[in-house]
Every structure is written in structure tokens, then in C-alpha cells.
Design a protein around this nucleic acid. Structure first.
Length: 593
RNA sequence: GGUUUGGUAGCUCAACUGGAUAGAGCAAUGCCCUUCUAAGGCAUAGGUUCUGGGUUCGAGUCCCAGCCGAAUCACCA
């Protein structure tokens, strides 16, 4: 039981004792005391005034006195307006330090026996990954880590969009203009090569359209009848019929893309337990739709197409099967959701998908519910805001897309330059140095993305490179490296801090211990809010706290060995917490930097 | 036009889900390396939380109206 729970209980008892009234949890507001004010926890007594029928100050004082008499953990209290500030006995914090400072897994919650599936990434095979995908991947991976830390069993899945007209476009362009180019022959990453042909298609297609318009054809008609487009559509039909030639080309080009993606995924440090391909799932869901029709939940239009009527729920009608019997995106999602819930016995399913698809997921949930699936309530759309550039949205056609690989390379270059300038890694081999540069570069990038509340849109300015100072990944990594340096030196001088006694701690030491204490709760909070930014903010505050402590007090040069040992324990504890918190963001921490 | 969503310092973001004097970083101006790593610390300056109403002990947070931006409303995925 944590301290807030203990205090809440004690307050309930005190109120019962004082005013002979039972109160529920909502009326007990225990929060951490603001920094400028003395105390550890603050009780807001305003909600209790109706019961006490006294002034705020009187109520607060009465409760304070009662708590002080009833419990062993409180040292003192003070009252400011309607706020009762409670100061705990120091031994509470020292005991907490003793019991936890050498725990490697600090922050790990008890096992919940819940399994949840997280779908993220979900790329198209016709375009290389860009900054928007980076946000998706980092969020998905981080949320998965956070849920694990919160005690859940987590399955990470990726649904690759590997079929459709857009894929045929790149295939066709490669066939026509590619001259047999391969990733090997060009030295290009496979996803880049294929992406180039997708762009090539668009260029050639536009030329054709322009020519048709020149020849006096209406714009709309020209766009629909350009030979390249017709050819691509033919190709899709051939693909669906598993035409050997088209199919093997499709396989070959997809392989190139996957090899390219794998490199990017590896650099980003994300992975999956299972990868689904739309080419294998796009027919799912048809049966369910047919059943829904029979049950009268769905309806058929005159042309034979099948629809869900959601107008009573304030939404539109939604097509689920075309007149020719082929399925749409929604059909597939109904099918895959059903497949996953029955196949894996999962309790919850999180979809990490951009907020442009809010409507889609709203409809999906509603249709599943109408079809009678109870688990529809356990679907959660983790909707995140778009990454915008100063000029607005990224547009591939205008060449404003920030490529994932390029961005990572750039970050590594910056980290290398900066690091070489500082020259603190001289003891390392070149390979070790490169490893540190990469750790720092990705730390900066990941932290930059994850510190922002997922549901909000965010701004990225490519002209101003991502910072390495201030509220950044490297700032936190740096604090960790300093802690490691101290601990190495302590080891060299054979200072043993494996057992600590009790001693008087100063304010900064206490407040550092308190900051560490908040970590497990932050993990749970972050999980229930699906928000890695809470972890990022937490670890930033922890590090700021530590840096002040580091600046104000010497650890190894402290003469009183009792105090020195405590400070080492606190440093060790803080280092572990930093490491564990950063791991939840998918960020590594270096021994030196 | 309907729906959803956002608007906080010059810029990028916080604010423990309705609590005390709205906080950080960047940028600006100073100060601190013979002291455990200066990718650090300290200080100054920067605000009518888009506007106007309302709800209550108390509103950046909830409700209503308006202004501005974004997304979406496809037999695309």
C-alpha cells in the first residue's frame, strides 16, 4: 500500500471520529505538497466542510491533530487556508531508500494476468518511413513497454499494407522505366528504390493527363482514362487472380521493401511479436458481414451492396461489402479484430493510429458492438496528432517529407560532432564511440517525440535541429553517465554502500528519495492514460532534482562516511530509476558521454 | 455545412485530470569549471491561459456562444 492510500484511510477514520460521518474516496483529496511549501503530502479539506460544518482552518487543524495522534508516520503538520500540509517522519523515506535502492527492477508492478495486443507501425509498402511513422513507431513501442512494466502481458503486432492499387503503381513504373534496377545494382535501400518508382508513376501519370487535356479532353475524364492508370488497374485484377508474373514481381519488390524497413526498425529499436500482411487478411470479415445481414443487423441496397446504418447513433451509413462482393477497409478490420480476439484470448486491443482515422475507429467499434461482440468495448484507438512542419503538413508530392533514415543519420552526425568537440570518450575504441553517438542521437530524437502528449499535434522544424541541451534526451543521459562515473570511482576506492543505516538527511536528499518514490505510480498512471509523455516529464524532473543535488553537494568527497554512503545509495537508486524510465521510452543510457 | 479536436511566454512544450502565487526548455542578458563529467548549475526578464458569458468555496481545466487552425464526413487504404 502506498503512502497516499494510507493517508486516505487515516483521514476517513479521522473524519468518522471527529464528525461521525462516513465519506467516500472522492471526498478525500491527498496530493503531493507543492515545492515551495513545507511538507510531503497535502490534504485539501474544502470537500469536507459540509461534513465538518466548520471553517476550513478549523477543519484542517482538527484533522491534522487527529492524524498526528492516531498514526506513527507523521512528524508534523501545518495549515494554510484550506490546505493541511503533512510532514512525514524521515524514517519513512530512509526505510524506503534502504528497501529499494539496489533493486534493478524498481518500478515493476505486480503481474495482472491481463494480455493486451498493441498494433502499431502499419506501413505502406510503396513509401519509405517518414517522421509521421517515427511518431507512430515510438509511441507503439513505448506504450507496449509501459504496459509490461505495469504488469501486463503484451503482444506487439504490425499490419503491413502490402496490396492495393498503390502497390501496383510502383510495380508498373518499375516494369516500364526501371531497366531492371535492384537495391544491389543501385546501392539504394529497397524501400527507397520502390518509393522512387511510386513517385515516378505519379510524374508519368501527370504527363499523360496533361497531354490528354491538351488534346481537348476534360480534366476529370483525363484523370480517369490515362493509360498508365488503366494499366495499373488491370495489374491489380491480375494480382487478385494470382497471375504468376505479376505475383512474383509483387513478391520481389515487397522483399526489397521489407529489407529496407527492417533496417529502419532496427535503428529505431522497435520490434514486433507478429507481423500481419493485408494480402493475407483482406478477405477476412466477409463472413461476419453476411451473418450480420442474415441477423438483420445490416442491410442490403438495391444494387446488392451491404451497409451498416448508423444514423441513429449520429453517424452515417457505412459500406461494408461492395455490390460486386469485394470488401473494403472496414470489412477487413472487422475480420482481423475478430480473428485476434478469438485466436489470442486477449483482454484489450490497442490500435496506434493517427487521429485522421478517428472516425474510422468510432465506426468500427460501433459496428462490432451492433454485431453483438462484447469485446468491442475493449478496443482502444490510441489516436495521436500529426507531426507538422512550419509550412504545414508533410506532403510527399511537394518533397517536404522528413525521411526517417535521413533524420536518424543527421542526428547521429550532430551527436558525433558535438561529442568529438567535447572529447570525453578518448578511452573508447572507434566502434564503442559510434555506439555512444547513436545512443545519444536516438535519445534526442525519441525524447523529442515522446515528451509531447500523444493526442496533441506537434511541430517539427527541420531547419532547427533537435536540441541536445535543456529538456532533452541527452540531458537525461548525461545525468546517468555522471552517476555511473561516480559509482565506478566508488568501486575503485572500494567504498561499500551495500548496507545503510539511518542518519539525518538534508532537504535535497529527501526530495530526491521522494522523486524516486513516485516512479512506480507514474508507470501505472502512464499506462492507464496510454501516455508515455508522463514518463518523459517524470524522468526530466527527477534528473533536474539530481543535477541540483550533484551541484550542491559532493558525494565522494563528503567526509562523514555515513552521509557519503547514503549519498551513494541515493545516486545508485536514481541511476536505476533513470535507466528504467528511459527504457520505457525505448531510450538507452550510456556509461560515459 | 455536420461531426471530432486543438488554441497557455517570441518559439517548442508542462500543469498530478476542478485546487494554493500557471511551470520548464530554447532564444536574450548576466554569473559559476585548481572542487565527483560545464551536454551541467544559479540569476534576471518574458503571461488578461484566443474572446465573451455561465457553473462554485475555487476554472487554463467543466458548460454555452463566438473567432482562428487541424482532421474527418469515399464503393481509397
Amino acid at each position: 500500500m502506498n503512502i497516499i492510500d494510507i493517508l486516505s484511510n487515516e483521514i476517513k477514520i479521522a473524519v468518522k471520529e471527529l464528525y461521525n460521518s462516513d465519506i467516500d474516496k472522492k471526498q478525500v483529496q491527498v496530493q503531493k505538497t507543492r515545492k515551495e511549501i513545507a511538507g510531503d503530502y497535502t490534504i485539501n479539506v474544502f470537500p469536507l466542510l459540509r461534513i465538518s460544518k466548520q471553517k476550513p482552518e478549523e477543519t484542517a487543524n482538527a484533522i491534522g491533530e487527529t492524524l498526528l495522534n492516531n498514526t506513527e508516520i507523521i512528524e508534523n503538520f501545518s495549515v494554510i487556508k484550506g490546505f493541511l500540509n503533512i510532514e512525514l517522519k524521515q524514517e519513512i523515506w530512509i526505510n524506503f531508500l534502504k528497501n529499494n535502492y539496489s533493486l534493478q527492477e524498481f518500478g515493476q508492478a505486480d503481474i495482472t494476468n491481463k494480455t493486451l495486443m498493441i498494433e502499431y507501425s502499419s506501413p505502406n509498402t510503396n513509401k519509405p518511413l517518414h517522421l509521421g511513422h517515427i511518431r507512430n513507431n515510438l509511441l507503439g513501442f513505448s506504450v507496449a513497454e509501459i504496459y509490461k512494466k505495469a504488469g501486463n502481458n503484451v503482444k506487439k503486432v504490425n499490419l503491413v499494407n502490402d496490396r492495393g492499387i498503390h502497390i501496383c503503381k510502383s510495380m508498373l513504373a518499375w516494369q516500364k522505366f526501371g531497366n531492371g534496377e535492384t537495391p544491389e545494382s543501385t546501392g539504394l535501400k529497397g524501400d527507397k528504390l520502390v518509393g522512387n518508382y511510386y513517385v515516378k508513376f505519379d510524374q508519368e501519370y501527370k504527363k499523360e493527363v496533361a497531354e490528354l487535356i491538351n488534346n481537348g479532353i476534360e480534366k476529370e475524364a483525363a484523370e480517369k482514362t490515362a493509360p498508365l492508370l488503366l494499366e495499373a488497374q488491370k495489374m491489380l485484377i491480375k494480382w487478385e487472380a494470382k497471375d504468376p508474373e505479376v505475383y512474383s514481381l509483387w513478391k520481389k519488390m515487397n522483399e526489397w521493401v521489407y529489407k529496407g524497413f527492417d533496417i529502419t526498425y532496427k535503428n529505431l529499436g522497435v520490434d514486433f511479436d507478429k507481423i500481419y500482411y493485408e494480402s493475407e487478411t483482406y478477405l477476412l470479415g466477409k463472413k461476419i458481414v453476411q451473418e450480420g445481414l442474415i441477423k438483420g443487423i445490416l442491410f442490403k441496397k438495391d444494387d446488392g451492396s451491404i451497409w451498416a446504418d448508423l444514423t441513429n447513433d449520429g453517424l452515417d451509413q457505412k459500406l461494408l461489402l461492395r455490390a460486386n462482393g469485394t470488401s473494403v477497409y472496414m470489412t477487413q478490420d472487422i475480420g482481423t479484430a475478430h480473428q485476434r480476439f478469438s485466436e489470442f484470448n486477449i483482454d484489450n486491443h490497442i490500435y496506434v493510429v493517427g487521429n485522421e482515422q478517428n472516425y474510422h475507429f468510432q465506426v468500427l467499434k460501433l459496428i462490432l458492438k451492433k454485431l453483438g461482440y462484447d469485446w468491442a468495448d475493449n478496443i482502444y484507438h490510441l489516436s495521436y496528432g500529426m507531426v507538422e512542419l512550419p509550412e504545414g503538413k508533410m506532403k510527399s508530392r511537394e518533397g517536404t517529407v522528413v525521411d526517417a533514415d535521413d533524420l536518424i543519420d543527421e542526428m547521429i552526425n550532430t551527436a558525433r560532432e558535438k561529442s568529438q568537440e567535447l572529447g570525453k570518450l578518448d578511452e573508447y575504441s572507434d566502434a564503442e564511440k559510434e555506439q555512444v553517438y547513436k545512443t545519444i542521437a536516438l535519445g534526442a530524437l525519441k525524447y523529442f517525440i515522446l515528451k509531447v502528449d500523444p493526442k496533441k499535434g506537434m511541430m517539427f522544424n527541420p531547419k532547427e535541429s533537435i536540441d541536445f541541451n535543456g529538456n532533452t534526451g541527452p540531458f537525461i543521459q548525461y545525468a546517468y553517465a555522471r552517476i555511473r562515473s561516480i559509482l565506478r570511482k566508488a568501486k575503485e576506492s572500494n567504498i561499500d554502500f551495500s548496507s545503510i543505516t539511518s542518519t539525518e538527511l538534508n532537504e535535497k536528499e529527501i526530495s530526491l528519495i521522494k522523486s524516486n518514490y513516485d516512479f512506480p505510480e507514474t508507470v501505472l498512471n502512464s499506462a492507464s492514460n496510454n501516455n508515455p509523455a508522463l514518463i518523459a516529464n517524470y524522468v526530466y524532473n527527477l534528473v533536474k532534482e539530481f543535477n541540483q543535488f550533484y551541484h550542491d553537494f559532493s558525494i565522494l568527497k563528503e567526509e562523514n562516511s555515513e552521509i557519503k554512503i547514503h549519498r551513494l545509495a541515493i545516486a545508485n537508486f536514481t541511476g536505476t530509476t533513470i535507466k528504467n524510465a528511459m527504457k520505457l521510452l525505448g531510450i538507452e543510457v550510456p556509461e560515459r558521454m
